[in-house]
């Protein structure tokens, strides 16, 4: 189980990386943390001609506090995200999610941008990005553009990122409410069978506003708008409304019906916990 042969480049600037990407065409692959890419290479599921290592790109690093929230460079390691005081203060949802990502050795190398670009429907960070209303900064041959996280994730391993583009950073507004984060995985560090990432604004013990994003259920992280809206009515109403938000897909661990059921359980538990905590 050895990776197929490829060439390797480690550009030092974003422009150089973009040029390499453009020149190589379909055979090029970016490698950041490599924690999802390298298994695929070792299994020869991918056979790139050129591996472009973007770990040298200073423009992609760092966590900074901004007026409206935070800016997270795409190369930020999960471990750094989890350890950041800025993240813990401004977007505690991200800090809550990090310990659930795989294991320490993976979190030390895996990157924020890599996780978003990989777009695994069961991954934690894409769901958090959607829940927090992140805007993703993308560099391409024609310059920069910004895409809302909600529009970025399109399907299983599918994103709005073009073949010739690089995800640079995420601009994330400060989290407007209490953290909601729960996931059900067979074993610690496994991808979730069903997970919930979100936040809830509370007025004493009443949820006044919330955003609920489910992962591991559908083909991508899904914002449960109907359920969020129905929270104002009751938890039962929200759980019922959730059926309209989700289109679960069966996997080896759960049927679609089971995922739907688990999503309702997570919704009830997360919201109840938030209310209890507030009270």
């Amino acid at each position: 189980m050895k990776a197929p042969p490829f060439r390797y480049a480690r550009p030092q600037t974003l422009d150089a990386a973009l040029r390499l990407l453009a020149d190589e065409g379909a055979g090029a692959r970016l490698i950041a943390g490599g924690q999802s890419l390298v298994p695929a290479l070792n299994m020869r599921l991918l056979e790139p001609t050129l591996l472009i290592d973007i770990n040298g790109l200073a423009e992609l690093t760092g966590i900074a506090e901004t007026a409206s929230g935070i800016r997270v460079g795409a190369l930020t390691r999960h471990a750094a995200l989890g350890a950041s005081a800025i993240v813990a203060r401004r977007t505690p949802l991200l800090a809550a999610a990090v310990p659930f990502i795989a294991h320490e050795a993976i979190r030390n190398r895996g990157t924020f941008g890599g996780s978003l670009a990989q777009a695994d429907p069961a991954a934690e960070l894409p769901a958090c990005a959607v829940a927090l209303g992140a805007r993703l900064e993308i560099a391409g041959p024609g310059g920069r553009r910004r895409v809302a996280a909600h529009d970025f994730f399109r399907g299983v391993y599918e994103t709005a990122l073009g073949r010739d583009e690089i995800l640079v950073a995420a601009e994330i507004p400060a989290q407007p409410g209490a953290t909601l984060f729960l996931e059900l995985a067979r074993r610690q560090g496994d991808y979730a069978i069903a997970g919930l990432a979100g936040w809830a604004a509370l007025d004493r013990s009443r949820i006044t506003d919330a955003r609920l994003v489910f992962f591991g259920t559908d083909i991508r992280a899904v914002e449960a708008r109907a359920a969020s809206a129905a929270l104002a009515t009751s938890l039962d109403a929200a759980a019922t409304a959730l059926d309209r938000d989700l289109a679960p897909v069966a996997d080896l661990n759960a049927s679609a019906a089971m995922k739907r059921h688990l999503a309702r359980v997570l919704l009830r538990r997360a919201c109840a916990a938030a209310v209890t905590h507030a009270a």
Binding site: R10, G34, Q35, V38, P39, N42, A105, R109
Partner: peptide
């Protein structure tokens, strides 16, 4: 060789890492 078992664990720049998920060429 796909990052699941931990048998290849090493330290890279002091941090725990899966050896099988890194190419030597990246470690210049």
């Amino acid at each position: 060789e796909h990052g699941a078992c931990g048998a290849c664990t090493v330290l890279i720049d002091g941090a725990l890492a899966r050896g099988c998920l890194v190419f030597a060429i990246q470690l210049d």
